[in-house]
Design a binder for these strands. Structure first.
Lengths: 249, 249
DNA sequence: GAGTATTGGTCTGAGTTCATACCAATTTTA
DNA sequence: TAAAATTGGTATGAACTCAGACCAATACTC
């Protein structure tokens, strides 16, 4: 800790820890980020339609004018296309990208720091979500959805769709927990993870390993074994994190 | 969908889970909430001075004009007093309140739901923070601060100061984890907890029990035993949650 | 006591965001 | 084919937020 520009003090400053920016950026930037994230994570896959503007705006607690600015940005960036009239709407046109190896060097120190924090946080919240999901009585429909999300990951052979399926899988588990706070936490963590994986080439062997761990998590959740689900997810997070930390420095 | 106004569907709607309001309210309301929370949780105890306006504004990523609106609201509400000139500033005048038993009935169903979610979330993030803290090499200053925060809880005899000391204790552990995301999560959870405890009378026996659990958490963290720290904090959260759930319905 | 530094208090003009209408295109329905 | 419904597109004025400059009060320094 000698060369690093910012050195933390030996003591804690509670207020410094607690007082955080009251909100990140402008409303329309936040919309772009949230919708862009949802699209890239595969919540809205290629070819699917976004909700109508009026509904999206009310969902995001934002005026339609602001939402439209965001939509314009997404359209500009080539993520979506829009047609009007009844039956029209906005449709996803973004094809999932593959990781580009040379992007890894460009990340700033702050971003790197944030990524490492996301990995720590993930190791806490995702196992928590898995445990909670395993603890609940799941309807048949939901058990089905979980297995389906898992199958989608296992059967996706190409890297980019696999990445999206993986995100959807983890988000599905979070949604099963039924905890709004946990869902938001996992969404934010998956978004960070997605960024990281775009900057890092993924190895085939790791995908196979990862899928075995996914299967273990699904089994534990369906069997209603919270502790086992949590531990399985912890292993999965640990292994992913070790890999990423290694490739990030 | 017959009796309950909002019943969740048997299946999951991923987009519904993931798309959340892009930001809660206006900037100045958010400032009021954040500063009010910090004061009530005892980050700024009675008689202590808040940072200068210019610094606070930059810390919260908000213009000074907006921050001042928030300050005016806090002043109006009697939480702080302001004097000007060099050496002046804004000082906390709020005496920690004691719980009022009859407040419990007034909480809305949505709030109740949010509180229950906060308890679930807490059971995930606070044990996680404790484990992380135990896993790090702590400087002597920090070990000292942790013990001091714990002593403050143990020695606070009256309910209101005890509540603040308790919040500070939990926030201290979160801060020790050095994870910004975890710190924010614990802050938000403690804020919800604080609201709940204001609406519910606290029993002396529970305070004693709680302090024994605090001690166990501190021992585990200082001994560098992450698993033990996590489990101790889990027990603490479980017991608190059971009590609160019982009193809330 | 004079000067300086630090603090809250005030003002202004520009940029965002908002709610609310209304217009235009297209499909569904009668 | 005509009407209705649904969708995106546009316009307007109010409210909020911002950055920056400047004023006023107070305490420290010389």
């Amino acid at each position: 800790m000698t060369a690093s520009p910012e050195q933390h003090p030996p003591g804690l400053d509670l207020e410094e820890s607690v007082l955080r920016p009251v909100r990140g950026h402008h409303a329309f930037e936040a919309c772009v980020e949230q919708l862009g994230t949802a699209i890239r994570l595969g919540v809205y896959p290629l070819g699917s339609a976004l909700p109508a503007e009026r509904e999206l705006a009310s969902r995001l607690h934002v005026s339609r004018a602001t939402l439209r600015e965001a939509m314009a940005a997404l359209r500009e960036a080539g993520l979506v296309e829009t047609t009007r009239g009844r039956g029209g709407g906005t449709v996803v046109t973004l094809k999932p990208r593959s990781p580009s190896a040379r992007a890894a060097a460009r990340v700033s120190s702050a971003k790197r720091q944030d990524w490492l924090d996301a990995l720590e946080f993930r190791r806490v919240v995702e196992p928590g979500a898995a445990a909670l999901a395993a603890q609940l009585e799941l309807t048949d429909v939901r058990r089905e959805q979980l297995e389906q999300a898992h199958d989608a990951v296992a059967h996706a052979s190409r890297p980019a769709p696999h990445r999206q399926a993986d995100s959807r899988f983890h988000l599905t588990i979070a949604a099963l927990s039924e905890s709004p706070r946990l869902i938001e936490a996992v969404t934010s963590v998956q978004s960070a993870l997605h960024e990281m994986l775009l900057a890092i080439p993924v190895l085939e062997t790791n995908i196979a390993h990862s899928d075995r761990q996914h299967a273990a998590v699904v089994r534990a959740i369906l069997a209603g074994r919270p502790d086992r689900a949590r531990r399985a997810m912890e292993h999965h997070c640990d292994d992913t994190a070790a890999l990423l930390r290694g490739l990030l420095g």
